[in-house]
Nucleic acid binder design. Structure first.
Lengths: 245, 245
DNA sequence: GGCGGGACTTCACACAGGTGAGCGCCGGCC
DNA sequence: GGCCGGCGCTCACCTGTGTGAAGTCCCGCC
Protein backbone atom coordinates (compact mmCIF):
# COMPACT_ATOMS: atom_id res chain seq x y z
CA UNK A 1 0.00 0.00 0.00
CA UNK A 2 2.69 2.46 0.97
CA UNK A 3 5.31 1.42 -1.51
CA UNK A 4 5.44 4.85 -3.14
CA UNK A 5 6.30 6.57 0.11
CA UNK A 6 8.79 3.86 1.03
CA UNK A 7 10.42 3.98 -2.35
CA UNK A 8 10.71 7.73 -2.11
CA UNK A 9 12.20 7.67 1.37
CA UNK A 10 14.73 5.10 0.20
CA UNK A 11 16.22 7.73 -2.03
CA UNK A 12 17.40 9.27 1.19
CA UNK A 13 18.16 6.35 3.48
CA UNK A 14 17.96 2.58 3.61
CA UNK A 15 15.04 1.41 5.70
CA UNK A 16 15.04 -1.83 7.65
CA UNK A 17 12.30 -4.40 7.15
CA UNK A 18 11.02 -3.39 10.54
CA UNK A 19 10.89 0.26 9.47
CA UNK A 20 8.96 -0.69 6.37
CA UNK A 21 6.55 -2.81 8.35
CA UNK A 22 5.94 0.10 10.69
CA UNK A 23 5.22 2.40 7.77
CA UNK A 24 2.89 -0.16 6.22
CA UNK A 25 1.07 -0.24 9.55
CA UNK A 26 -0.01 3.36 8.99
CA UNK A 27 -2.45 2.38 6.33
CA UNK A 28 -5.69 2.38 8.24
CA UNK A 29 -8.61 4.75 7.74
CA UNK A 30 -8.20 5.05 4.00
CA UNK A 31 -10.23 7.84 2.46
CA UNK A 32 -11.45 7.97 -1.13
CA UNK A 33 -12.16 11.18 -3.01
CA UNK A 34 -13.64 12.03 -6.36
CA UNK A 35 -11.95 14.43 -8.78
CA UNK A 36 -12.67 17.99 -7.77
CA UNK A 37 -13.53 17.11 -4.18
CA UNK A 38 -11.95 19.15 -1.41
CA UNK A 39 -9.67 17.15 0.84
CA UNK A 40 -9.46 20.01 3.29
CA UNK A 41 -10.66 23.60 3.13
CA UNK A 42 -9.25 26.92 4.22
CA UNK A 43 -10.38 27.52 7.79
CA UNK A 44 -10.71 23.83 8.65
CA UNK A 45 -8.91 22.58 11.70
CA UNK A 46 -6.29 20.03 10.64
CA UNK A 47 -6.65 16.85 12.66
CA UNK A 48 -4.26 14.48 10.97
CA UNK A 49 -1.51 14.23 8.44
CA UNK A 50 -2.67 13.18 4.99
CA UNK A 51 -0.62 10.68 3.08
CA UNK A 52 -1.38 10.17 -0.59
CA UNK A 53 -1.54 6.57 -1.76
CA UNK A 54 -2.95 7.13 -5.21
CA UNK A 55 -4.02 9.95 -7.46
CA UNK A 56 -3.05 13.59 -7.82
CA UNK A 57 -4.12 16.59 -5.78
CA UNK A 58 -3.37 20.29 -5.62
CA UNK A 59 -2.86 22.75 -2.85
CA UNK A 60 -4.30 26.12 -3.76
CA UNK A 61 -5.41 29.49 -2.59
CA UNK A 62 -8.02 31.74 -4.03
CA UNK A 63 -7.97 35.53 -3.74
CA UNK A 64 -11.19 37.37 -2.91
CA UNK A 65 -11.73 38.31 -6.53
CA UNK A 66 -11.37 34.76 -7.79
CA UNK A 67 -7.77 34.69 -8.94
CA UNK A 68 -6.49 31.25 -8.08
CA UNK A 69 -2.97 29.98 -7.50
CA UNK A 70 -1.95 26.37 -7.21
CA UNK A 71 0.95 26.22 -4.78
CA UNK A 72 1.90 22.57 -5.16
CA UNK A 73 0.89 19.24 -6.55
CA UNK A 74 0.64 16.05 -4.54
CA UNK A 75 1.47 12.75 -6.17
CA UNK A 76 1.44 9.23 -4.67
CA UNK A 77 3.79 8.88 -1.73
CA UNK A 78 3.51 12.54 -0.74
CA UNK A 79 2.78 13.67 2.78
CA UNK A 80 0.81 16.77 3.49
CA UNK A 81 2.65 18.52 6.26
CA UNK A 82 4.25 16.72 9.10
CA UNK A 83 2.74 18.19 12.28
CA UNK A 84 0.06 20.30 10.56
CA UNK A 85 -2.23 19.53 13.41
CA UNK A 86 -0.18 21.96 15.48
CA UNK A 87 -1.86 24.79 13.60
CA UNK A 88 -5.31 25.91 14.58
CA UNK A 89 -6.63 26.30 11.11
CA UNK A 90 -5.72 25.71 7.49
CA UNK A 91 -4.63 28.77 5.55
CA UNK A 92 -5.31 27.11 2.20
CA UNK A 93 -7.26 24.29 0.59
CA UNK A 94 -6.33 20.97 -0.97
CA UNK A 95 -8.42 19.42 -3.72
CA UNK A 96 -8.35 16.11 -5.56
CA UNK A 97 -7.48 16.34 -9.24
CA UNK A 98 -7.99 12.68 -10.08
CA UNK A 99 -9.70 10.07 -7.90
CA UNK A 100 -7.57 10.05 -4.75
CA UNK A 101 -6.88 7.39 -2.19
CA UNK A 102 -5.22 8.66 0.99
CA UNK A 103 -4.48 7.67 4.56
CA UNK A 104 -5.27 9.99 7.42
CA UNK A 105 -2.54 9.52 9.98
CA UNK A 106 -3.74 10.59 13.43
CA UNK A 107 -1.44 12.83 15.44
CA UNK A 108 -0.84 10.25 18.18
CA UNK A 109 0.19 7.64 15.65
CA UNK A 110 2.59 10.02 13.99
CA UNK A 111 4.07 11.31 17.23
CA UNK A 112 4.46 7.76 18.55
CA UNK A 113 6.20 6.74 15.37
CA UNK A 114 8.60 9.67 15.55
CA UNK A 115 9.27 8.80 19.13
CA UNK A 116 10.23 5.21 18.51
CA UNK A 117 11.78 5.10 15.04
CA UNK A 118 14.66 7.50 14.57
CA UNK A 119 15.51 6.32 11.07
CA UNK A 120 11.98 6.89 9.86
CA UNK A 121 11.92 10.21 11.64
CA UNK A 122 15.04 11.34 9.84
CA UNK A 123 13.56 10.22 6.54
CA UNK A 124 10.38 12.18 7.23
CA UNK A 125 12.46 15.23 8.06
CA UNK A 126 14.17 14.81 4.74
CA UNK A 127 10.77 14.68 3.07
CA UNK A 128 9.79 17.89 4.82
CA UNK A 129 12.98 19.67 3.81
CA UNK A 130 12.61 18.59 0.20
CA UNK A 131 9.04 19.87 0.13
CA UNK A 132 10.25 23.22 1.42
CA UNK A 133 12.92 23.27 -1.28
CA UNK A 134 10.31 22.53 -3.93
CA UNK A 135 8.20 25.41 -2.69
CA UNK A 136 11.20 27.72 -2.90
CA UNK A 137 11.96 26.55 -6.41
CA UNK A 138 8.41 27.40 -7.41
CA UNK A 139 9.08 30.90 -6.09
CA UNK A 140 12.01 31.17 -8.49
CA UNK A 141 9.92 29.70 -11.25
CA UNK A 142 7.15 32.26 -10.90
CA UNK A 143 9.45 35.15 -10.22
CA UNK A 144 12.15 34.78 -12.81
CA UNK A 145 11.34 32.30 -15.53
CA UNK A 146 9.49 32.92 -18.80
CA UNK A 147 6.28 31.08 -19.63
CA UNK A 148 8.08 28.38 -21.61
CA UNK A 149 10.71 27.92 -18.95
CA UNK A 150 8.08 27.70 -16.23
CA UNK A 151 6.15 24.97 -17.98
CA UNK A 152 9.30 23.09 -18.94
CA UNK A 153 10.47 23.30 -15.33
CA UNK A 154 7.20 21.95 -14.01
CA UNK A 155 7.31 19.06 -16.46
CA UNK A 156 10.89 18.25 -15.46
CA UNK A 157 10.10 18.36 -11.78
CA UNK A 158 7.03 16.19 -11.96
CA UNK A 159 8.64 13.71 -14.33
CA UNK A 160 11.59 13.26 -12.01
CA UNK A 161 9.44 13.05 -8.92
CA UNK A 162 7.32 10.38 -10.57
CA UNK A 163 10.39 8.52 -11.76
CA UNK A 164 11.72 8.49 -8.22
CA UNK A 165 8.71 6.47 -7.11
CA UNK A 166 8.61 4.23 -10.15
CA UNK A 167 5.62 5.85 -11.80
CA UNK A 168 7.26 6.48 -15.15
CA UNK A 169 7.42 4.08 -18.05
CA UNK A 170 10.48 4.89 -20.11
CA UNK A 171 10.15 8.55 -20.98
CA UNK A 172 6.40 8.62 -20.41
CA UNK A 173 4.25 9.24 -17.38
CA UNK A 174 0.65 9.97 -16.46
CA UNK A 175 -0.15 13.65 -16.49
CA UNK A 176 -3.75 14.33 -15.50
CA UNK A 177 -3.42 18.12 -15.28
CA UNK A 178 -5.64 20.35 -17.42
CA UNK A 179 -4.32 23.45 -19.12
CA UNK A 180 -6.30 25.60 -16.72
CA UNK A 181 -4.58 23.90 -13.79
CA UNK A 182 -1.22 24.33 -15.48
CA UNK A 183 -2.04 28.02 -15.80
CA UNK A 184 -2.99 28.30 -12.13
CA UNK A 185 0.24 26.58 -11.14
CA UNK A 186 2.52 28.67 -13.34
CA UNK A 187 0.89 32.05 -12.83
CA UNK A 188 -0.23 32.28 -16.47
CA UNK A 189 -3.58 32.22 -18.24
CA UNK A 190 -4.88 29.12 -19.95
CA UNK A 191 -4.68 30.90 -23.30
CA UNK A 192 -1.01 31.54 -22.88
CA UNK A 193 -0.37 28.04 -21.58
CA UNK A 194 -1.99 26.75 -24.74
CA UNK A 195 0.18 28.97 -26.95
CA UNK A 196 3.30 27.93 -25.10
CA UNK A 197 2.51 24.21 -25.19
CA UNK A 198 2.09 24.53 -28.92
CA UNK A 199 5.53 26.07 -29.13
CA UNK A 200 7.02 23.34 -26.93
CA UNK A 201 5.46 20.61 -29.04
CA UNK A 202 6.78 22.24 -32.19
CA UNK A 203 10.24 22.31 -30.64
CA UNK A 204 9.95 18.59 -29.86
CA UNK A 205 10.32 19.21 -26.13
CA UNK A 206 7.22 17.33 -25.04
CA UNK A 207 4.40 15.16 -26.27
CA UNK A 208 1.32 15.83 -24.19
CA UNK A 209 -1.85 14.07 -25.15
CA UNK A 210 -4.64 12.17 -23.49
CA UNK A 211 -3.43 12.84 -19.95
CA UNK A 212 -0.03 11.40 -20.82
CA UNK A 213 3.29 13.19 -20.93
CA UNK A 214 6.22 11.97 -22.98
CA UNK A 215 9.62 13.59 -22.72
CA UNK A 216 11.58 12.57 -25.82
CA UNK A 217 14.77 14.29 -24.66
CA UNK A 218 14.98 15.04 -20.97
CA UNK A 219 18.32 16.79 -21.34
CA UNK A 220 16.82 19.20 -23.86
CA UNK A 221 13.83 19.87 -21.62
CA UNK A 222 16.12 20.49 -18.66
CA UNK A 223 18.10 22.94 -20.67
CA UNK A 224 15.00 24.77 -21.87
CA UNK A 225 13.83 25.04 -18.27
CA UNK A 226 17.17 25.99 -16.72
CA UNK A 227 16.38 23.03 -14.52
CA UNK A 228 18.82 22.00 -11.81
CA UNK A 229 17.59 18.91 -9.92
CA UNK A 230 19.72 19.56 -6.86
CA UNK A 231 16.76 20.94 -4.90
CA UNK A 232 15.06 17.54 -4.97
CA UNK A 233 17.96 16.11 -2.97
CA UNK A 234 17.73 12.65 -4.52
CA UNK A 235 20.85 10.57 -4.40
CA UNK A 236 22.17 10.68 -7.93
CA UNK A 237 19.25 9.09 -9.74
CA UNK A 238 18.75 6.50 -7.07
CA UNK A 239 22.27 5.07 -7.26
CA UNK A 240 21.80 2.87 -4.20
CA UNK A 241 18.50 1.64 -5.55
CA UNK A 242 19.99 0.14 -8.67
CA UNK A 243 19.25 -3.36 -7.35
CA UNK A 244 15.51 -2.96 -7.81
CA UNK A 245 15.50 -0.28 -10.47
CA UNK B 1 20.23 37.74 23.33
CA UNK B 2 17.46 35.53 22.05
CA UNK B 3 14.54 37.66 23.04
CA UNK B 4 13.32 38.04 19.46
CA UNK B 5 13.03 34.31 18.96
CA UNK B 6 11.44 33.86 22.36
CA UNK B 7 9.00 36.67 21.78
CA UNK B 8 8.06 35.16 18.45
CA UNK B 9 7.57 31.67 19.85
CA UNK B 10 5.37 33.09 22.56
CA UNK B 11 2.86 34.02 19.93
CA UNK B 12 2.31 30.31 19.68
CA UNK B 13 2.75 29.01 23.20
CA UNK B 14 3.69 30.13 26.67
CA UNK B 15 7.23 29.14 27.55
CA UNK B 16 8.36 28.38 31.08
CA UNK B 17 11.31 30.20 32.60
CA UNK B 18 13.20 26.97 32.23
CA UNK B 19 12.35 26.81 28.53
CA UNK B 20 13.55 30.36 28.07
CA UNK B 21 16.76 29.67 29.92
CA UNK B 22 17.39 26.67 27.71
CA UNK B 23 16.86 28.78 24.61
CA UNK B 24 19.14 31.49 25.94
CA UNK B 25 21.74 28.77 26.43
CA UNK B 26 21.93 28.34 22.67
CA UNK B 27 23.73 31.60 22.21
CA UNK B 28 27.30 30.45 21.86
CA UNK B 29 29.46 30.70 18.75
CA UNK B 30 28.05 33.99 17.58
CA UNK B 31 29.03 34.90 14.07
CA UNK B 32 29.22 38.42 12.65
CA UNK B 33 28.77 39.25 9.00
CA UNK B 34 29.12 42.35 6.91
CA UNK B 35 26.43 43.51 4.49
CA UNK B 36 26.70 41.55 1.27
CA UNK B 37 28.61 38.68 2.83
CA UNK B 38 27.44 35.15 2.09
CA UNK B 39 26.28 33.29 5.16
CA UNK B 40 26.16 30.06 3.23
CA UNK B 41 26.56 29.27 -0.45
CA UNK B 42 24.88 26.90 -2.86
CA UNK B 43 26.79 23.63 -2.76
CA UNK B 44 28.03 24.08 0.80
CA UNK B 45 27.37 21.31 3.25
CA UNK B 46 25.10 22.61 6.02
CA UNK B 47 26.58 21.82 9.41
CA UNK B 48 24.34 23.73 11.78
CA UNK B 49 21.12 25.63 12.05
CA UNK B 50 21.51 29.39 11.78
CA UNK B 51 19.56 31.58 14.15
CA UNK B 52 19.40 35.29 13.43
CA UNK B 53 19.95 37.56 16.40
CA UNK B 54 20.27 40.85 14.57
CA UNK B 55 20.16 42.21 11.09
CA UNK B 56 18.43 41.20 7.87
CA UNK B 57 19.41 38.54 5.37
CA UNK B 58 18.03 37.05 2.16
CA UNK B 59 17.79 33.59 0.77
CA UNK B 60 18.27 33.63 -2.98
CA UNK B 61 18.97 31.65 -6.07
CA UNK B 62 20.63 32.78 -9.23
CA UNK B 63 19.92 31.28 -12.64
CA UNK B 64 22.82 30.53 -14.96
CA UNK B 65 22.20 33.67 -16.96
CA UNK B 66 22.22 35.92 -13.92
CA UNK B 67 18.54 36.34 -13.20
CA UNK B 68 18.21 36.40 -9.45
CA UNK B 69 15.28 35.60 -7.19
CA UNK B 70 15.09 36.30 -3.49
CA UNK B 71 13.02 33.53 -1.96
CA UNK B 72 12.72 34.88 1.57
CA UNK B 73 13.95 37.43 4.03
CA UNK B 74 15.33 36.65 7.45
CA UNK B 75 14.75 39.08 10.29
CA UNK B 76 15.86 38.82 13.93
CA UNK B 77 14.48 35.75 15.66
CA UNK B 78 14.29 33.72 12.48
CA UNK B 79 15.68 30.23 12.18
CA UNK B 80 17.14 28.96 8.99
CA UNK B 81 15.80 25.46 8.59
CA UNK B 82 15.38 23.12 11.45
CA UNK B 83 17.34 19.98 10.56
CA UNK B 84 19.01 21.39 7.42
CA UNK B 85 22.09 19.45 8.31
CA UNK B 86 20.24 16.34 7.16
CA UNK B 87 20.78 17.49 3.59
CA UNK B 88 24.08 16.89 1.89
CA UNK B 89 24.35 20.24 0.27
CA UNK B 90 22.64 23.60 0.07
CA UNK B 91 20.51 24.20 -3.00
CA UNK B 92 20.60 27.98 -2.55
CA UNK B 93 22.55 30.75 -0.88
CA UNK B 94 21.91 33.09 2.02
CA UNK B 95 23.46 36.55 2.16
CA UNK B 96 23.55 39.29 4.75
CA UNK B 97 21.71 42.48 3.77
CA UNK B 98 22.70 44.54 6.80
CA UNK B 99 25.39 43.67 9.34
CA UNK B 100 24.20 40.36 10.77
CA UNK B 101 24.73 38.69 14.12
CA UNK B 102 23.75 35.04 14.23
CA UNK B 103 24.17 31.90 16.29
CA UNK B 104 25.21 28.66 14.71
CA UNK B 105 23.40 25.91 16.55
CA UNK B 106 25.24 22.59 16.17
CA UNK B 107 23.17 19.57 15.26
CA UNK B 108 23.79 17.75 18.54
CA UNK B 109 22.67 20.74 20.55
CA UNK B 110 19.50 21.05 18.55
CA UNK B 111 18.71 17.35 18.60
CA UNK B 112 19.37 17.22 22.33
CA UNK B 113 17.08 20.14 22.89
CA UNK B 114 14.30 18.57 20.85
CA UNK B 115 14.78 15.39 22.80
CA UNK B 116 14.40 16.94 26.21
CA UNK B 117 12.06 19.91 25.79
CA UNK B 118 8.74 19.02 24.21
CA UNK B 119 7.25 22.48 24.58
CA UNK B 120 10.17 24.10 22.79
CA UNK B 121 10.03 21.39 20.17
CA UNK B 122 6.40 22.08 19.47
CA UNK B 123 7.14 25.80 19.22
CA UNK B 124 9.95 25.13 16.76
CA UNK B 125 7.62 22.98 14.70
CA UNK B 126 5.20 25.85 14.64
CA UNK B 127 8.01 28.11 13.43
CA UNK B 128 8.77 25.62 10.67
CA UNK B 129 5.14 25.38 9.59
CA UNK B 130 4.77 29.15 9.53
CA UNK B 131 7.88 29.49 7.38
CA UNK B 132 6.43 26.97 4.95
CA UNK B 133 3.19 28.94 4.88
CA UNK B 134 5.10 32.15 4.16
CA UNK B 135 6.86 30.47 1.27
CA UNK B 136 3.53 29.34 -0.12
CA UNK B 137 2.11 32.81 0.22
CA UNK B 138 5.04 34.15 -1.79
CA UNK B 139 4.08 31.68 -4.49
CA UNK B 140 0.63 33.24 -4.61
CA UNK B 141 2.16 36.69 -4.54
CA UNK B 142 4.37 36.07 -7.55
CA UNK B 143 1.82 34.06 -9.44
CA UNK B 144 -1.33 36.05 -9.08
CA UNK B 145 -0.81 39.54 -7.74
CA UNK B 146 -0.05 42.74 -9.66
CA UNK B 147 3.11 44.72 -9.02
CA UNK B 148 1.43 47.08 -6.57
CA UNK B 149 -0.29 44.26 -4.74
CA UNK B 150 2.96 42.31 -4.49
CA UNK B 151 4.87 45.17 -2.95
CA UNK B 152 2.00 46.05 -0.64
CA UNK B 153 1.80 42.43 0.43
CA UNK B 154 5.49 42.26 1.18
CA UNK B 155 5.32 45.44 3.24
CA UNK B 156 2.36 44.10 5.20
CA UNK B 157 4.05 40.81 5.87
CA UNK B 158 7.32 42.27 7.03
CA UNK B 159 5.66 44.95 9.10
CA UNK B 160 3.55 42.38 10.91
CA UNK B 161 6.45 39.99 11.39
CA UNK B 162 8.53 42.78 12.84
CA UNK B 163 5.69 43.92 15.06
CA UNK B 164 5.34 40.38 16.38
CA UNK B 165 8.88 40.58 17.75
CA UNK B 166 8.60 44.14 18.98
CA UNK B 167 10.69 45.73 16.25
CA UNK B 168 8.14 48.30 15.20
CA UNK B 169 7.69 51.72 16.69
CA UNK B 170 4.09 52.79 16.20
CA UNK B 171 3.49 52.48 12.49
CA UNK B 172 7.17 52.64 11.59
CA UNK B 173 9.86 50.06 11.23
CA UNK B 174 13.37 49.67 9.87
CA UNK B 175 13.41 48.66 6.26
CA UNK B 176 16.95 48.21 4.93
CA UNK B 177 15.96 46.73 1.58
CA UNK B 178 17.06 48.42 -1.65
CA UNK B 179 14.76 48.75 -4.62
CA UNK B 180 16.84 46.19 -6.48
CA UNK B 181 16.32 43.70 -3.68
CA UNK B 182 12.61 44.48 -3.63
CA UNK B 183 12.60 43.74 -7.35
CA UNK B 184 14.40 40.44 -6.88
CA UNK B 185 11.93 39.45 -4.17
CA UNK B 186 8.80 40.37 -6.10
CA UNK B 187 9.82 39.12 -9.53
CA UNK B 188 9.88 42.63 -11.00
CA UNK B 189 12.60 44.94 -12.32
CA UNK B 190 13.98 47.77 -10.24
CA UNK B 191 12.57 50.27 -12.73
CA UNK B 192 9.09 48.96 -12.24
CA UNK B 193 9.50 48.78 -8.47
CA UNK B 194 10.43 52.42 -8.56
CA UNK B 195 7.39 53.33 -10.64
CA UNK B 196 5.13 51.35 -8.35
CA UNK B 197 6.56 52.79 -5.14
CA UNK B 198 5.92 56.23 -6.56
CA UNK B 199 2.32 55.26 -7.13
CA UNK B 200 2.02 53.83 -3.62
CA UNK B 201 3.46 56.96 -2.07
CA UNK B 202 1.07 59.10 -4.08
CA UNK B 203 -1.80 56.98 -2.81
CA UNK B 204 -0.60 57.49 0.76
CA UNK B 205 -0.09 53.78 1.29
CA UNK B 206 3.49 53.99 2.50
CA UNK B 207 6.25 56.36 3.43
CA UNK B 208 9.59 54.81 2.56
CA UNK B 209 12.69 56.87 3.09
CA UNK B 210 16.10 56.47 4.57
CA UNK B 211 15.77 52.74 5.21
CA UNK B 212 12.60 53.35 7.20
CA UNK B 213 9.09 52.25 6.40
CA UNK B 214 6.02 53.99 7.76
CA UNK B 215 2.55 52.56 7.22
CA UNK B 216 0.10 55.40 7.84
CA UNK B 217 -2.94 53.15 7.42
CA UNK B 218 -2.32 49.45 7.76
CA UNK B 219 -5.93 48.59 6.94
CA UNK B 220 -5.63 50.43 3.62
CA UNK B 221 -2.34 48.72 2.82
CA UNK B 222 -3.84 45.33 3.63
CA UNK B 223 -6.74 46.03 1.35
CA UNK B 224 -4.48 47.14 -1.48
CA UNK B 225 -2.47 43.94 -1.07
CA UNK B 226 -5.40 41.57 -0.65
CA UNK B 227 -3.51 40.62 2.47
CA UNK B 228 -4.91 37.99 4.79
CA UNK B 229 -2.68 37.45 7.82
CA UNK B 230 -4.01 33.99 8.61
CA UNK B 231 -0.96 32.32 7.07
CA UNK B 232 1.29 33.80 9.74
CA UNK B 233 -0.65 31.85 12.38
CA UNK B 234 -0.15 34.46 15.08
CA UNK B 235 -2.66 34.44 17.90
CA UNK B 236 -4.84 37.46 17.20
CA UNK B 237 -2.27 40.22 17.38
CA UNK B 238 -0.52 38.70 20.35
CA UNK B 239 -3.57 38.67 22.60
CA UNK B 240 -1.86 36.75 25.35
CA UNK B 241 1.16 39.03 25.12
CA UNK B 242 -0.79 42.13 25.99
CA UNK B 243 0.96 42.29 29.37
CA UNK B 244 4.26 43.33 27.82
CA UNK B 245 2.97 44.85 24.60
C1' DG C 1 -26.72 7.83 -31.72
C1' DG C 2 -27.68 12.48 -30.47
C1' DC C 3 -26.80 15.88 -26.70
C1' DG C 4 -24.20 18.54 -23.49
C1' DG C 5 -20.29 20.12 -21.27
C1' DG C 6 -15.62 20.43 -20.36
C1' DA C 7 -11.22 20.91 -22.36
C1' DC C 8 -8.55 22.62 -26.05
C1' DT C 9 -7.53 25.94 -29.72
C1' DT C 10 -7.34 30.27 -32.12
C1' DC C 11 -7.86 35.20 -33.02
C1' DA C 12 -7.40 40.41 -32.67
C1' DC C 13 -6.38 43.55 -29.59
C1' DA C 14 -4.82 45.70 -25.05
C1' DC C 15 -1.69 46.69 -21.40
C1' DA C 16 1.42 45.62 -17.45
C1' DG C 17 5.77 45.39 -16.97
C1' DG C 18 10.58 44.94 -19.22
C1' DT C 19 14.72 47.22 -21.64
C1' DG C 20 18.57 50.17 -22.02
C1' DA C 21 20.21 54.25 -21.04
C1' DG C 22 21.10 58.34 -18.58
C1' DC C 23 21.16 61.65 -14.66
C1' DG C 24 21.59 63.28 -10.01
C1' DC C 25 22.07 62.62 -5.13
C1' DC C 26 24.39 61.21 -1.15
C1' DG C 27 27.46 59.12 1.94
C1' DG C 28 31.96 56.90 2.61
C1' DC C 29 36.74 57.24 1.92
C1' DC C 30 41.37 58.95 0.93
C1' DG D 1 36.90 68.48 0.33
C1' DG D 2 36.87 66.10 -3.84
C1' DC D 3 36.17 61.62 -5.89
C1' DC D 4 33.68 57.44 -6.52
C1' DG D 5 30.19 54.02 -6.42
C1' DG D 6 25.78 52.62 -5.12
C1' DC D 7 21.19 53.78 -5.13
C1' DG D 8 17.10 56.23 -6.53
C1' DC D 9 14.68 58.13 -10.22
C1' DT D 10 13.01 59.05 -15.06
C1' DC D 11 12.34 58.57 -20.02
C1' DA D 12 10.96 56.50 -24.64
C1' DC D 13 10.16 52.53 -26.49
C1' DC D 14 9.22 47.52 -26.79
C1' DT D 15 7.26 42.87 -25.85
C1' DG D 16 5.38 38.97 -23.34
C1' DT D 17 1.41 37.85 -21.58
C1' DG D 18 -3.53 38.97 -20.56
C1' DT D 19 -8.51 39.73 -22.34
C1' DG D 20 -12.77 38.43 -24.26
C1' DA D 21 -14.85 35.91 -27.38
C1' DA D 22 -15.76 32.26 -30.38
C1' DG D 23 -15.27 27.79 -32.56
C1' DT D 24 -14.00 22.80 -32.39
C1' DC D 25 -13.22 18.39 -30.51
C1' DC D 26 -14.15 14.57 -27.73
C1' DC D 27 -16.10 11.74 -24.31
C1' DG D 28 -19.75 10.32 -21.21
C1' DC D 29 -24.57 9.94 -20.70
C1' DC D 30 -29.43 9.40 -21.73
Amino acid sequence: MLHHLIRKLEHFTRLSDDDKAVLQGLSRTVRLLEPGADIIREGDSPEHVNLFLDGWASRYKQLEDGRRQIMSFFVPGDLCDLHVFILREMDHAIAAITPVRLVQVPREVLLGLMDRHPRITRALWWETLVNAAIQREWTVNLGRRTALERLAHLFCELFIRLRAIGLTDGNTCAFPITQLELADATGLTSVHVNRTLKEMRAAGLIILKGRQLTVPDLAALRKAALFNPNYLHLERDGAHLSANA
